[in-house]
Design a protein around this nucleic acid. Structure first.
Lengths: 210, 210
DNA sequence: GCGCTTGGTGACCGGCCAGTAACCAAACCG
DNA sequence: CGGTTTGGTTACTGGCCGGTCACCAAGCGC
């Protein structure tokens, strides 16, 4: 009888670091799709074409795996905000760039974004803190600009910044899930106008830089 | 040996409807404290001074119990927004009242609010939809005012409204968790100003659409 | 005081799933 | 071509917890 090459080792062996990278990638997909609680280590392993113990050779446990992913996702979102702010000197344009970031992330189903904002492990203190960092750090970055260019005291600037952040990602998610008739560009334009009218007026004395 | 009065029946029997009400109350506490996943039916029963089967005589399962609570919490939050909007005819004041609602809810640790905004069952489609209703319906109520008083097309109004909603509750949570130096009143004042400068400029202004 | 309705109880079960023990094979190295 | 390293596997266990089964008692109506 014809001898098939015996059940081929799934997809070949991989060097340690490559396997780890692959596992992270697969785990990201699974966690984004199913959330922390519904995701099973078995499924992650299976979708990586590998058996469970391999997973545990790379990560001490499910929580640590998730934390690693969340942590990097958080950084990635914050980085996005920083880049948007750094992309121009014009504050109205800064607002627009930041708003565009939120709407793009939502519309493109950006994985890092979804992992963070749709997390179902908010009850875990460590994870909760990580997730809060998105708002905290994004606000801090924005607040820095506000303090510099509008001369507001830091706590006030931070509060306004946090409001803008919320306005961005909540508005964006609502826009997408509500299947609004507005195009993405129109939505960004509107949201930016709202934000800029709000924040742009803030220097105590009307109209300042930009 | 002296016979103690045998292990007293926990706290007396209750008529069906009263027991149900009590169970809902206890369950609300537990779910708010621990989230859906960490909460156990055993604990809810125990804290109600009752055994588990009683719980199941009133609710078919954990999910249904939770859903019942979330659903009413959602309604309660939406109602809050509607009341804030109806509390005055002055739009600047409407903005302030709504903003105050968010900050008060956060600062007072309002249970309905926390249950909704800290839910860890977002992955369940039914629950997810329920929770989205908070933004959707709140925005709809606000958008109605915007359409009426600023003459914007409905989709635009809805997007702006959603942004304001996000600005409110995200800003409020950030304010509280960041232990800002601002008092609650100051925070509300600032946030309201931001929001009103943003939205208040909108009445029939032609200057968008570049 | 007897029996039926109504509001309970204690003890158990079974599925799911994170995590592990024990063992295997490819391939590089000399 | 032997042996060690390295990347794998199969099969199991043990705890948690949602959900249930079989049974109990308080008291009201007669």
């Amino acid at each position: 009888m014809s001898q098939l090459p015996p059940p081929r080792t799934r997809a070949g062996r991989l060097p340690r670091s490559a396997r780890r990278a692959q596992l992270l990638e697969v785990a990201l997909d699974v966690f984004v799709e199913q959330g922390y609680h519904n995701a099973s280590m078995d499924e992650i392993a299976e979708r990586a074409g590998v058996s469970k113990p391999v997973l545990y050779q790379h990560f001490p446990g499910k929580l640590e795996l998730y934390t690693a992913l969340i942590s990097s996702a958080v950084d990635s979102v914050i980085d996005g905000v920083r880049h948007a702010l750094a992309s121009t000197q014009d504050n109205a344009e800064r607002v627009r760039a930041t708003m565009q970031l939120w709407y793009d992330s939502v519309a493109d189903q950006e994985k890092a974004f979804r992992l963070v904002f749709e997390s179902d492990l908010t009850s875990d203190p460590a994870v909760g803190e990580l997730i809060d960092r998105v708002t905290t750090e994004s606000s801090a970055a924005i607040a820095e600009v506000i303090v510099a260019d509008a001369g507001l005291p830091k706590p006030a600037a931070q509060l306004l910044a946090a409001g803008l952040v919320g306005m961005g990602h909540v508005g964006a998610r609502a826009w997408l899930s509500g299947e609004s008739e507005l195009t993405r560009a129109q939505a960004i334009e509107l949201a930016s106008t709202l934000a800029w009218r709000g924040i742009g007026g803030f220097p105590q004395t009307p109209d300042r830089r930009s």
